[in-house]
Each structure stands twice: as C-alpha cells, then as structure tokens.
Design a protein around this nucleic acid. Sequence first.
DNA 1: CTTGACTCTGTAGTCGAGTCCAGGGTTTAT
DNA 2: ATAAACCCTGGACTCGACTACAGAGTCAAG
Lengths: 155, 155
Amino acid sequence: MAGAGRALKIGEVAKQSGVGVEALRFYEKSGLLDRPSRTESGYRVYGAEVLERLAFIRRAQVLGFSLEEIRRVIAERRAGQSPCAEVREVVRRRLAELDERMAEMRRYRKELAAALAGWDEAGDVAGHVCGLIEGTTITEPKSTRRLAGRQKGKS
Amino acid sequence: MAGAGRALKIGEVAKQSGVGVEALRFYEKSGLLDRPSRTESGYRVYGAEVLERLAFIRRAQVLGFSLEEIRRVIAERRAGQSPCAEVREVVRRRLAELDERMAEMRRYRKELAAALAGWDEAGDVAGHVCGLIEGTTITEPKSTRRLAGRQKGKS
DNA sequence: CTTGACTCTGTAGTCGAGTCCAGGGTTTAT
DNA sequence: ATAAACCCTGGACTCGACTACAGAGTCAAG
C-alpha cells in the first residue's frame, strides 16, 4: 500500500494529515511516531507510511484511546508481539466505560429535560434558581471519571 | 430552612459536604462561594446555607455545568435577576451537546463492539493491529469537542 | 542575493478543576 | 503546658493533548 509522493517534509505531512506541525513533533517526542530520517540540514523526512500511522492514531483517539494507550499499542507492535490482547483489553474497558457513561448521560438528559420542561411552564420563584438545580434529585454517580475527552480541534 | 448547627469551620463544611478544604477555598477564590465571615484569628466561619450552595454546585456540575457557568449563574442570581434565562440557555445547550455526544458514542460503541466481535474469531494477522483500528472506517466527527469532562474524583 | 516561507530545538503556556506544600498561627484535648 | 489537630496564605504542581514562542538555520523563487 501507499505509493503516493514520498519524501514528505513535516509541513506536507501536516497538510495531508491535518495534524499540525507542532503536534507531529510532539507525537514524535511521545513515541507515537518513529523519528524520521533527516536531510543533511536536519529537516525531518517522512515516508508516506507516516500518514497511515497518523490515521491509525486519529482513529484510535476517536475510539477513545489515550495517546499513552496508543503509544503502548504501537510499542508492542514494534516489539513483534501482536498487541491484540492489549488492544482487546482496552477496547473491552472502553466499551464498559462507554456504556456506563451513556447510562449516566441518559440519566442526566432526563433530569435536564424534565427540569427544563417542568420549569418552562412554572415560571420562576425568586430565591430558587428556577428550581432547576436546587430541585432535582440526582442519583449521584459514585465516581465521576474522565470521558474520552478531547480538546477543541481546529479543523 | 436550615437550622442545624451553625458556625461551621471549613473542616466541618468539608466533612458535611464532601467537598474538601482546598476545594472550598478554591471555590471562594473563584467566586462560587461568598467569602464567609471570619473569627478574630482569621478562621472562616460558615453558616449552614453554604451546604445548600455546595449542593447546588455539585448538582449543577453533575448536570454538566462548568464552574464558570455556575459562577455566572450565581452572580446573576445575586444581582437580583433571576438567572433562569441563562440557566435555560445553558441547559438547552447541554441537552443538544449531550444528544450529539451520545449519538457519537453510540456510533463508537458499535464500531468497537463490531471490531471486537469480528476480530475475536478471526485471529490476528501480523502487520495489521488486529484489524481493529486500521480496519474500521469511522465517520469522523467533524469537530471533536470537549465532553463534559471531569477529572478523577477521589470519592 | 535577498526575501520570505519553511524548518529546527527547547522551553513555556493553555485549559479545567482542583491538589499539595511550606511555613506559619490557633484551638482543643490531655 | 504541650502536643495534636486544625486553620491561614500564597504559590506551585497535576493531567492530557497540545499550542506558542524565541532565536537560529535552510531552501526556493524572483
């Protein structure tokens, strides 16, 4: 696979992958990208396969892997072992988390929607903030854990 | 309302609210809590109503409000205006976000589950990472936005 | 040959929601 | 009276995934 124009400089890679020059260097530092060869003057020179790697990373990210997890997967792959066991593990965990998360969200959604609706017609009583928050009784999630949170993308 | 033991010191409040001394001071600094009166020696002295305020904050947080949003709501309330319009706004936004989020999650879940299942019986092919990530084609979310992310809770 | 776009390294800053610490002072129980 | 437990301030640190910047070198076009 791959066969497009090779010998990409970092800016090319950024443009083609949508990842951003700084992020690319950051990924390299974090062990997500192999360090590429260099021109005599020190410029990074990538082969087209880096684009696949980046797609891989993006995908994994989207699936909820943290960069650290992705790093481990890649490292294992490079160590010859198929990282499948690991990946499977992570995926299973993700699934469970996702389900939990979604259940939580559904609950919140219900609360929110109910509060909004009920309060939409009730008008507001001074002193109470719309009854919205002070009124609702929520079954507290015992541990509020991270979502597969990602920051604002520029795209 | 309220009528329990008044004149709480910060540690009491922490214990009764589950919020943590440092967080309480942090909330105060951030304008989420009014600054309480002090003893002569400078100790914070809270009235019981702070517990309600904290419950309010917790609830709002759980509903997906950021501290900044909560701060605004409280500020508006204090300014005499009912913050209902604002709250409603935020809630509506949250609902929309939540829905979008959940749709995304459902998609991911499907991908993950499918990948896991399909791959569970296929065995692994070297070179491909389980087909999991390199294989799946995901309809990319056009902008990857923050979830109502919250860090690891200590509870 | 000069201008401007690109690249390099290394360090620092961002955001959110806190946590942790040092280096004090105070209150309470023994 | 003294130790333990509490409280104070101010600032630094955490985590994750980047982004920004300074200051310097390099490359391609005109």
